[in-house]
Write a protein that binds this DNA or RNA. Structure first.
Lengths: 216, 216
DNA sequence: CGATACATTGAACAAATTCAAAGCTGGTGG
DNA sequence: CCACCAGCTTTGAATTTGTTCAATGTATCG
């Protein structure tokens, strides 16, 4: 296994003694694309540090649809809320690529973690990031219309259309493939964007595009 | 002004020197019911500690409707995400009752805050709470149907119907008053609940009630 | 008692998903 | 080389879930 605790920026502040203790209560685990790391509703026993790959966080609705929340890339702490609060995971996590996590027996580590000011700072950063992510999810899903979501995505990350299929993009912004298709057609028709045969999007009228999702 | 820094559990760990510094860069402000503390989109300059009253956090959608996020009661830190990250407030805050906040010039305090392990711990707790709140908002608004929201509210907090008007309850769970009315009628009709003339709800079939919002 | 707010009900509307069918596209094997 | 198939995309129609609008009914409280 080529992974090492030393390579995790998160623990750079731990002294050798603490690192030894951490080594004893943690291990690396690799995953293949598609494998689940934890499931919504499960009680947590481990804290996760994503060290390799892309890990998708999602919820499942009553009809069995996945609602995309976020995709993490290394190095990220995952599952801290459930661990800190001893509550079931509020979402599921599945690897999109192959990857690896460090699994930590959190309870055994709690003291070392919260006593160490450097680690506390890291935790604060991680939690702050989560609040920001969730706050964005709320804005995205409760405030923006489908058209606004598409407009925002194009404005902020038009290149994604060259990289992945509309299919997958629709999943990421939580709209149906049909709605995405119809919205793109509408934007083209309104001369706000154009799309070539290689899925390269050209923004013809950025002001109009922004107006579709800014303010509200 | 009857408020004192000493009464804020949050700062119990600060030494006299730090307290003095804090005193110099903070002040208490009282509000009447209905007054705004900050507005979605504004850039933050101050960090807030709610010390009195009920403070509602909400977002505004494109049609000008308020989307209820949470109501804070003392003692709560409010606005830390925007302050830590130097980003616009993602939501607005308005007092529901009369109340008061401590306003802190955050930048001047940052070092004292993050260096002190007790305060770091408090910040971690506060952020953890925020993640939990937002996670619940997402579950509530993206997973549950209107009927599920009403069922959950009745199961967890049926007494609220005796305390406030359906009107207000509808706002809190983000459904229209009409939808709430129709859902209550349906639950009564299905013999899952009954409501007397004083708005006291009796749950006749708790299993059926739970089934309406548990799993999904 | 009468004004004002709150609750209920039905009908129209809105936004997006679902379902179904048809059109493309790109890679593979014959 | 091209015919085919599987997987995307597109399009239209039906459906779903809730809000909005309007009217009426019911409390409540000076």
């Amino acid at each position: 296994m080529p992974y090492s605790l030393k390579d995790i920026p998160f623990f750079s502040a731990l002294d050798d003694q603490a690192l030894k203790r951490l080594e004893r209560i943690s291990y690396f685990k690799t995953y293949n694309a598609g494998e689940l790391v934890f499931y919504e509703g499960d009680m947590p026993t481990k804290l996760y540090i994503l060290v390799d790959g892309v890990l998708r966080l999602y919820k499942t609705d009553s009809k069995g649809h996945e609602i995309y929340i976020h995709q993490f890339t290394p190095t990220s702490m995952v599952g801290e809320l459930a661990n800190f609060e001893q509550i079931p995971f509020p979402a599921s996590a599945r690897f999109i690529t192959k990857g690896a996590v460090l699994k930590i027996e959190f309870k055994d580590m709690e003291e070392d973690f919260f006593k160490n000011p450097e680690i506390s700072m890291q935790i604060i950063k991680s939690l702050t990031r989560k609040v920001k992510i969730l706050s964005n999810v709320i804005h995205h899903e409760m405030i923006l219309t489908s058209e606004a979501k598409v407009a925002k995505l194009i404005d902020e990350n038009a290149e994604i259309f060259e990289k992945i299929k509309n299919n997958q993009i629709a999943q990421i912004i939580n709209v149906s493939a049909e709605t995405l298709s119809r919205t793109l057609t509408k934007l083209k028709h309104n001369k706000i964007i154009s799309i070539d045969d290689k899925y390269v999007i050209t923004i013809l009228d950025r002001d109009a595009l922004k107006k579709l999702y800014i303010d509200l």
